[in-house]
Design a protein around this nucleic acid. Structure first.
Lengths: 223, 223
DNA sequence: GACAATTTGGACAAGAGCGTCCAAAAATAT
DNA sequence: ATATTTTTGGACGCTCTTGTCCAAATTGTC
């Protein structure tokens, strides 16, 4: 018997679909492969055979597990956004609330942020995806839209506000500072990422150092 | 007789193709429509009929003028990059070399830059395109890669260096300052643009003001 | 080893899209 | 008005893609 195909019924919001009980490793390897190919070729340019090949799986298996090209796409987006969000808040939790060396601590945090959330595979995928399919599938990213950048900003802003209160920073608009911090962090990476270059660690670090240095020139406590 | 189709021979570099002598208005309207549809749907998701419809032209006419989907795509990219480059250097020429009110002048310049080069249709198109097709057609953007951001950075860096010499700024790395200036300029726009929102003028202006304010906090002459 | 679930590969119909051909209509030039 | 160029729309062949069906092979379980 072929495995139950993806159910027509829509899972209640918030409930995580258990999915058909095919071997889960295949299920994930398909999602991974699909993410890879969708990212490289775009939704329109992707065909199921590419995904099957990339996942080392027969085409039928792809259909067995995910039922539909669009369903597969949605599954991929869901998976990636979940991973990204998780990683993002994990990293945010490592913010230096009680810094010993503010500049070094902030730079290290910036490196973690860029490496684990922005420059990795998922980050690249999500960025690319939102830009290329965001207008065509607005519902798909509605969630990201409210839970993505806004949440990160405010979380980061809260940290900066505390650093201001504890006398480490001198700023009046923590939200603005948070946005500009992120912008500075990305300054050097933006262009490199646009073309899909892989980014070395030392580049990441020097980039973070320069960003933090400028950030502190603007918002640091004047001695 | 049907108009001569796009020549197979590759035009010598630097030479601007005269192209088949079809009515030029149609030629341009097709390019414009194609840019619009390619931008919305991606290369793979676009079909010639959409473009023909958007341009109010029969499908055959599209083929008469540009011969091929890929040739058309290349023509569109060439057109857009040329327009972008032209606009970019036009705007760069308005940099406040002898500022009366540094903060206000820089902010006005930033508004011009964002409005005329980054947030307009061509800017959005090029960005989206480079991100979605940059890895698949690296040759297409090889030119942009060396003539695009690098040139803008160095041009801007030269201006900042002069402002430093004339005592308006306090910086040691003009290139870095240029990149960070651009990053700050884009800080607030990035997210709004990702989803294709149209951006109001007052948002553009307040965004530029805040960016310049922070930039000057970091690089301004300390009184 | 026997049994069930899963995967595989190949064949298939239906449809979409590309690019071509062509003769009739419209626009433009002479 | 006449000749030339451009545009049009429709029909066509071709290829690629989707999604389905199914019988055989593989894998995992008891």
């Amino acid at each position: 018997m072929p495995p139950a195909t993806a159910p027509d019924t829509i899972a209640p919001p918030g409930h995580i679909e258990t999915g058909p009980r095919g071997h889960i490793e295949k299920r994930l390897s398909i999602i991974d492969a699909a993410a890879c190919v969708f990212c490289r070729e775009g939704y329109g340019g992707t065909n199921i055979d590419m995904i099957a090949a990339q996942a080392n799986v027969s085409r039928q298996t792809v259909y067995n597990h995910h039922g539909d090209k669009e369903k597969l796409f949605r599954a991929v987006v869901r998976e990636v956004t979940e991973r990204i969000n998780a990683g993002l808040f994990d990293t945010l939790a490592t913010f230096p609330d009680r810094p010993t060396d503010l500049e070094a601590d902030l730079a290290a945090f910036a490196v973690r942020l860029t490496r684990n959330c922005i420059c990795n595979r998922d980050g690249k995928f999500l960025r690319k995806l939102i830009q290329s399919e965001g207008e065509r599938y607005p519902e798909l990213f509605a969630d990201w839209r409210v839970n993505g950048p806004a949440k990160v900003w405010s979380a980061l802003a809260a940290r900066f506000a505390r650093l201001a209160l504890s006398g480490h920073l001198d700023l009046d608009d923590p939200d603005l500072a948070a946005r500009q911090f992120l912008a500075l962090i990305n300054a050097d990476l933006q262009t490199a990422m646009l073309l899909g270059d892989d980014i070395g660690d030392e580049f990441l670090e020097s980039s973070a150092r320069q960003a933090v240095r400028t950030f502190l020139r603007a918002y640091g406590k004047r001695a």
